[in-house]
Amino acid sequence: MATKSVAKKQVETPDGLTEIRWHGRGGQGAVTAAKMVAELALGQHKYFQAFPEYGPERSGAPIVAFTRVSDEPIQVYAGIEHPQIVVVLDPSLLSIVDVTKGAPDDAIVLVNSEMSPTELRKHYGLEGFRYYTIAATRIAVETIRRPIPNTPMVGALTRITGLFPIENVVNFLREDFGKKFPPKVVEGNINAITRSYEEVQGE
């Protein structure tokens, strides 16, 4: 898949370590999603780490967050330079941020978009990597009634990475969100997750 313009990258990652980099805009819930994946990993008896790159905490400003999931205790404390998975919560970032910077050739790039991966590539002139798309904002509006794409992105991520079974994600939402939010919000989020799990598109 890699073309001439994409350099071959051999990245050494310890076995059993998955590194996810989240790109979003302030207010889209990227940090919450990064943390949610860490908590889901805990439910799988895996080790985890999740943290944002603290910058300007303005609504709409580009932000970055990181999640590590591992079979072994995680020692490294640094931002993720070579993510195996890149999650883009806002497609407009594709024109202004190098979201695949440092990613290995076989990295998965999951983008919140109405387009199919092929259309997305054509529209933004994207080469290399493995692109997936999900209309997360639309799904969020239809299920949660708010344009916050983070939980749908986690649903799509669950499908394409197989990091944890979808039932675990649903149970987590029921238990964890159930403590903080009214049942209507919890069910909305569960719908968002299951719908995006079904609707994510690959190439």
Partner: peptide, 12 residues
């Protein structure tokens, strides 16, 4: 402990 790196990050 380290600000943000530990203070604000989720860990076990």
């Amino acid at each position: 402990y380290d600000g943000y790196v530990i203070s604000g990050a989720i860990g076990p």
